[in-house]
Amino acid sequence: MNVTRGFTGRPRVLDPGLPPGQYDAGDDWPVLSAEVTPDLTPADWTFRIDGLVAEPRTWDWDEAHALPASVYEGDIHCVTGWSKFGVRFGGVSLDAFLDVVRPGASATHAVAYSHSGYTTNLPLADLTGGRAWIAWEYDGKPLPAEHGGPARLLVPHLYFWKSAKWIAGLRLLDHDEPGFWERNGYHARGNPWEEQRYSGD
């Protein structure tokens, strides 16, 4: 360990909710999308699941909202270093969508893609069991466009680049296929508790 002369850092807060190498962003919620925020209204929005499923399906805004509502209250973690505690997203559990399309036995992974063309890959196991949502509300209000509104994928137990903004669909696959950041050096899974930031971490 090479100590930096004169560096003390912030007061130590014993925070079991903070993954290694992260800091508490407090009230800030930085926006870090690399592309132009798309001009997408709820009327334009659709969400599709296809690939290795029994019945591929596309939902529009109203059809998606007809599914049982579900809320995530907890923390989110960005690979750039900030974590945000006690956020509240509203939407629908991804399980509700997957129950309709019925993933095949050979489906092991998914590529999530956005209406902007952004992609990110996830193990199917990270998208099921009440750990992933399609979210359209933040703090009881419509999700702002710069944060992925009208609707984004929410996978809060992984670094937040996995929670694709402006979610357009999931394609289920029998293998892992890297998405945009993952093709460019980011970790395939991105578990903040194991500090899986970059490929090789």
Binding site: A34, E35, V36, V111, Y113, S114, H115, S116, G117, Y118, T119, A168, G169, R171, L173, E177, P178, G179, F180, R183, N184
Partner: peptide
């Protein structure tokens, strides 16, 4: 220009 196997219906916004 990195290429990938799966291409979403919308052309990717910003290739590496």
């Amino acid at each position: 220009e990195p290429t990938g196997a799966f291409s979403p219906p919308t052309r990717f916004a910003v290739p590496g």
